[in-house]
Amino acid sequence: METCKMPHCKEAGTHTWALVPVCVEHRRAIKLETKQYYLRNISYQMRTNYMGIMPLIPWSRKE
């Protein structure tokens, strides 16, 4: 089993977000953050949890 890919997290990556393994707590945080973003309650730059895994998301990489 992989570990959560969020920086500084050592929990088991039991779930995924955008194909990236994350723990239960970080998945919940990213989901809430995403909902707030699409409801226009927070800006893109305020999505700190999402930004933590963004370099690992296959379709967000620039090669």
Rank of each mutant, 00 (worst) to 15 (best):
T14S: 09
C9T: 06
L19M: 09
R61Q: 15
G52D: 07
E11H: 13
E2A: 11
G13E: 02
A18N: 09
T34E: 14
C9R: 10
R40F: 06
E11T: 08
Q36H: 14
E33F: 04
S60L: 15
W17E: 00
S43H: 02
E63L: 02
E63W: 04
T16F: 04
I42N: 00
A12E: 08
R47D: 01
P7A: 13
I57Q: 05
W59M: 10
E25A: 09
G13R: 01
Y50M: 11
V24D: 10
Y37C: 09
L39M: 05
I53H: 03
S60M: 15
I42P: 03
W17Q: 01
A29I: 09
Y37W: 14
M51L: 14
E2N: 08
A29H: 13
I30Y: 06
M6S: 00
T34D: 01
L32E: 10
G13M: 01
A12F: 04
K62H: 15
V24P: 00
S43V: 02
Y44L: 08
H15K: 14
M51P: 02
Q36W: 11
P21K: 11
T34K: 08
I57C: 13
E33H: 05
T3E: 00
K62N: 15
M6E: 06
P58E: 10
K31A: 07
T34A: 12
K10Y: 02
